[in-house]
Nucleic acid binder design. Sequence first.
RNA 1: GGGGGGGUGCCCGAGUGGCCAAAGGGAGCAGACUGUAAAUCUGUCGGCGCAGCCUACGGAGGUUCAAAUCCUCCCCCCCCCA
Length: 417
Amino acid sequence: MDRSESLDGVPVEVREEYAELLMGSVDVLPEGELLRQLLRARSENRPLRVKLGVDPTTPDLHLGHTVVLRKLAQFQKYGHTVVLIIGDYTGKVGDPSGRSKTRPQLPDEVLAANAKTYREQAAKILDMDKVELTYNGDWLGPLRMDEVLRLTATVTVARMLERDDFSRRYLANEPVSMLEFMYPLLQGYDSVAVRADIELGGTDQKFNLLMGRTIMEAYGLPPQSILTVPLLVGTDGEQKMSKSYGNYIGVTDEPEDMFGKVMSIPDSLMVTYWSLLTGAGTREVESLEKGLADGSYHPAEAKRDLAQRLVALYHSDAAAVAARSHFDRVFKEKDRPVEIPEAPLPEEAVQNGLVWLPRLLTSLGLAPSNGEARRLIQQGGVRVDDAVVQDPATEMEADSLRGTVIQVGKRRFLRVV
RNA sequence: GGGGGGGUGCCCGAGUGGCCAAAGGGAGCAGACUGUAAAUCUGUCGGCGCAGCCUACGGAGGUUCAAAUCCUCCCCCCCCCA
């Protein structure tokens, strides 16, 4: 977007605030509105109400979710009020988006549990003491039919079909349920309920966010402005980060795992991750880019630093350092990790004092089936005390196994005790 | 209500009587290589102590020496017309 609007007469503090809020944002609409809001908020000494709605459909947040949370944290930093809406109601109905399969309707207990972990995990980024936390079931649940109808009357079908994924699916003969049409309306109604000044979301939410404006106007309220942040690309470097694509890095991932996953992103994604996930400032990101470009900053080093920084954010500096040395040890020097998890020799794997290797792997959980274990062995992916074993018929004496380290692939180790 | 098109392995998708545990792609997994769990290449990719057997192509029956493929009924999904 064009961000060259004149800042003449804008106080320096607001310029700074504005610049930081724009950083990393994709759409900030309508043009110039956010700046006006910031100025007004300042002159009236009234913080902006910044809305984010989340559906508690997954128990764990991943780094993709944190992009928008970081943006919220910036608003918070400047004294604005973050209004976090847990979509317990919308989650309960079950959004069938994208698939013909109806998404299972989540039971209350699951939603409540998800909401709880969401709060805990969001607390790593936001100051939750200052967040206004709400549940949209509080106002959507009691809505009467006539009120629902009033809501539906505010938007036309043609308008709905402007939404890219709706029209695309519609043209492709894929189902679009009425329920899905309701989602943007309910989300917009949330904005009415909390009197939002601005709503944040991923770029995929642009339509819904704009719908909030329409609906607020229909309810006689000043329409919110909207700010979108980029969707984070997952570790595969292609699709957006999502649990269902298996390309996600969870904020609760163990330090070593998180470190490793970060190391698996394509180089081309590094700068993006730095700027969207670490809270690094513009200057820091620029010098990093420069270093990578002129060769003074080795990409492998940059990625390690990135991984370390992210682990530090969600765990601790110590854990981050440990994860890094673990990674270097195991992958760079192809050595064993210092700490190897231990597991007792499973009884069921022992027959007449002998242990058949594939069965050992499955019973230790290192392979899902004997067939898979066989393949791993044949492909040279299994080591017993550093020695590759390639014969799937291998049998070993149970007693001799105790204390040995079983390795599957490059990164799974287990010591039999 | 009428007409048409579909339901295949984790996902997408080919297959219309045997050569089909089912092409191809993606994901996953393993190996090689590398600064990396990047990229690339190779292999593998239902289960079973596996040169064999079992289970599988929406569900249930049936025809056949033989069915994902043909028939019957049922369930589910999509589109068009009304």
